[in-house]
Design a binder for these strands. Structure first.
Lengths: 237, 237
DNA sequence: CAACACCATTGATCCTGATCAATCCCTTCC
DNA sequence: GGAAGGGATTGATCAGGATCAATGGTGTTG
């Protein structure tokens, strides 16, 4: 039994605090969404605080302004699967029906833009572009979920980790020195990749010894991208 | 390395034959789709024939009339992940962008209704209900993909199999004797659950010995639903 | 209807990654 | 700055499921 989730997490505390009502964002989202901004609120979430729980009524959806969020499913016995890490610019919560089927928790100090789903739905009902954009979001998530299923179902530990590192190097804001922050813990990475903390550590240590990557507790530098890609990208096409 | 896909499949042959142009279906899809039917064609696909390949231009989306389809991702070395089994009433191919990111193959003799995406897009652009319905499809698939990620990442072999059997018992047309057809091979089940054929066989054999299920090569009877659910449903909520 | 091919089943053994356990090392907090 | 606590690392061992191997069953084809 794989189990990996008895590592004690900081007890998710309930929501953060509301900072401001409306106000322009640094990089506004897609054009059709301008109307949505009228209903939005900016919220700051503390590290490890819960944004919404599994089973919560789905009242809001969210866009990440800064920080990192994990989308989590829990099993009764504590086993945990992190569906995805959400980074600045990413949307989440839009795909729920009545209730959220996953919990969302802040991986690090995070600032969100929060949108009432009622307003979303109302706008979407009268503006095809908004619905179409939601559809795009959903299909994007679906396609990346499929890639992850291949990883979880058929890839070895080092293949999963190589793939994860490349994904992070690509998605995280790059400081052009080639170093990217890794905001999540080893436990989070393990629960994302279907591995244990120890396996994650050992694979990372091996890659560091090989000179493939540079690594500290919270940052990553890809030193030999080709080598990483060779390990990770066995998927056809 | 898990590997499970060197079992030689009947070489996927290219597409089936067109049966009829338009014509009313037994159970028509949702109301907003009536307009779509004008552009639809019914197609019969032979067992193991490929409906579309990974990387194909996404020209059509499909609804299953009868039969069963597998949505497949292949790795270069032959490892295979079946994202989902699609059954009568299910839609697929609607979520692609330029190209399909998965292959679709007939698990058994299958009849499809095929819709040109160009027509879908055109209708969706002018009718919010169609776009909204596509969104519903996409989010449904996304939510079920998340459940599968928990299974692939964190569940044991018997948990995955119990869950799979319950899902099939629920989704397959029930002949009220409690027996449902299992159209897919053990290899397909293995590649869906991230296991090997042998592990699937052994788990099934054990469940049969326990009296939990009745089983033949191609059919399943759930004898002790509670027992199966106890094994499968460890997910909170 | 016999032969074959392919899938399913069962057994024996192996190996990847899990589990158990012991430091280590940062960060925080007093 | 020292102590404490929690994450990270590393080592030793275990086990679930993979792999290798042999046999059995079933549908297909000439």
């Amino acid at each position: 039994m794989e189990q990996s989730s008895q590592h004690t997490f900081a007890q998710p505390r309930r929501i953060g605090l509301t900072i401001a009502r409306a106000g322009a964002e640094a990089s506004p989202p897609q054009p059709p969404l301008a109307a949505l901004e009228d209903f939005a609120v900016t919220v700051a979430i503390r590290k490890d605080a819960e944004i919404h729980a599994q089973g919560d009524r789905a009242l809001y959806c969210y866009r990440i302004v800064s920080g990192c969020v994990r989308s989590v499913k829990l099993m009764e016995d504590g086993r945990r699967q992190i569906n995805e890490f959400l980074l600045p610019g990413d949307w989440f919560g839009f795909e729920a029906l009545e209730t959220h089927d996953v919990a969302a928790e802040a991986v690090s100090e995070t600032v969100l833009r929060r949108y009432p789903r009622r307003a979303c739905d109302a706008l979407a009902a009268e503006d095809v572009r908004i619905t179409r954009w939601l559809l795009t979001l959903a299909t994007d998530h679906l396609r990346s979920a499929r890639d992850r299923m291949v990883a979880l179902g058929r890839k070895t530990a080092s293949e999963r980790i190589a793939g994860f590192l490349l994904e992070m190097a690509k998605r995280m804001p790059n400081d052009r020195s080639g170093t990217v922050a890794l905001p999540m813990s080893r436990g989070d990475i393990a629960d994302h990749l279907g591995l244990t903390i120890e396996t994650v550590c050992r694979c990372l240590a091996q890659m560091r010894r090989d000179g493939t990557i540079g690594l500290t507790r919270t940052s990553l530098m890809v030193r030999q991208r080709a080598a990483l890609e060779a390990v990770a990208d066995a998927t056809r096409h």
